[in-house]
Design a protein around this nucleic acid. Sequence first.
DNA 1: TGAATGACTCGAT
DNA 2: GATCGAGCCATTC
Length: 112
Amino acid sequence: MSEPTFYEKVYEVVRLVPPGRVTSYGAIAKYLGAARSSRLVGWAMNVSHGVVPAVPAHRVVNRQGLLSGKAHFGDVNAMEVKLTAEGIEVVNDQIQHFDRIFWDPEKDLTIT
DNA sequence: TGAATGACTCGAT
DNA sequence: GATCGAGCCATTC
């Protein structure tokens, strides 16, 4: 056991992502005050595998809306299936209408 | 303590 | 417009 680290903060933000929406690593990093630490967010996701409650890492994608981390879900299709189940269109591992379903932690109170 | 890693991002060519 | 390279920051060995 250790004190809350950068990862714990990342988990909190990722869990705030509403279903049917997606966010980017940079957005989370920026919200945490480390916009340049976008890689740390990805690292946190790597540790989030055994974290509870589960972290909807499938709602976190890169700046291009590409499922860059789908290969780390165990099944490369798991991420796409989860996103599609929430109503998100994914084609060729890329999210469609990404700018439309993009969710920003700082705008969690903003309307669609 | 120092060096290496990483599911990213931006800038330049 | 697409592709390549460097930067950046926190955690781990």
